[in-house]
Amino acid sequence: MQALRLRVARKSREAAGVAAFELRSLDGSALPPFTAGAHVDVLLREGLVRQYSLCNAPWERDRYVLGVQRKVDSRGGSVAMHDEVHEGAIVDIGLPRNLFSMAPAKRSLLFGAGIGITPLLSMAEVLHASGRAFELHYSARSPEQAAFRARLAAAAYADRVRFHFSTGPGANRLELPPLLATPDPEARLYVCGPPGYIGDITDFAAAHGWRADQVCVERFGATTASSGADRAFDVVLARSGRRFTIAPGQAIHEVLLSEGVEVPLSCEQGVCGTCLTRVLSGVPDHRDSFLDASEHARNDCMTVCCSRATSPELLLDL
């Protein structure tokens, strides 16, 4: 990972369980550019790398802003950010990457839930600055759990923001029919949030005639979809001929690392694509959110951090 060494200039509470981190260069120099929807890899400690969306405006070259939710089921990343990364700390991050980029459209509908609001914030800034039509629909359990709520309420585009809360006084859950029942061929949808939330929106859109190329999704966790049973299979490394058995409940990368085989890793959830590996023979059981449906169908590569196999054996280009 090509790293930037930055300083945490400010750490603030943005909602219950959500902290914002403002990162700046050590010498005051401009940071590498990024585009709306981009993220960075944050190296928290050796072997612990996590991805967080950049949520400030892309033209702000003096800082990067990240929003991080402390997760109850954290595998170490969000807890480390909240408990170990304080104002003044020095952190190493990768260069910005974008797997959730915007495309030109007459109108954009942005849907975010929970911490899924983060990449949409930079998108809203760009859409507003360019004079393009958009709406931002933000769902949270309650106002206290809506990250960056004050920023959105005070934004120049606040009249295009709709908050949807599922509990408390004035609860107003997101209603999809008024928004998506009639497809707009010149619009694009951008969706980020928990898997169930994403599935509800994408399924509704597909059922009502929205084209697949109009819907762009950012997932912060792997899908649980599986095309085969969780059973044992063998992995063969093409370059050495070594063979390993992957038992039910084991991940390919865990077995390979335990046997001294180097595998590039980052998110370990099938989201970032760092561990993407060529498949020379065999049929993967894709469980990632990085590859799209057409790439899954080709079966010529797989994420070894979370995907498995439907065939008895996989021959990998390792």
Rank of each mutant, 00 (worst) to 15 (best):
V8I: 15
A9H: 10
R10G: 03
R10Y: 08
K11Q: 15
K11R: 15
A19Y: 15
A20F: 09
S25N: 10
L26W: 08
D27R: 11
S29H: 15
P33S: 13
D41C: 07
E46M: 07
E46G: 10
G47S: 08
V49S: 06
R50P: 05
Y52M: 07
C55S: 13
N56D: 14
E60W: 10
L66P: 09
V72E: 14
G76A: 08
G77A: 13
S78L: 05
E87V: 04
G88P: 06
I93Q: 03
L95V: 06
S101V: 15
K106F: 05
G112V: 09
I117G: 03
I117D: 00
I117Q: 04
L121V: 12
A124I: 06
E125V: 05
S139E: 14
Q145I: 05
A150V: 12
P169G: 06
A171V: 11
A171Q: 12
E175G: 07
L179T: 09
P183R: 01
D184R: 04
R188W: 05
A207W: 05
R211W: 07
A212H: 14
V215T: 15
R219C: 14
A225Y: 04
R231N: 13
V236L: 07
L237Q: 12
R239A: 14
G241F: 10
P248D: 13
L257G: 02
S258G: 15
E262W: 06
P264K: 11
P264Y: 00
E268G: 03
G282R: 00
V283N: 00
D285C: 02
S289Y: 06
D292P: 03
S294H: 09
E295K: 00
T303D: 00
C305R: 00
P312V: 08
L315K: 00
D317Y: 01
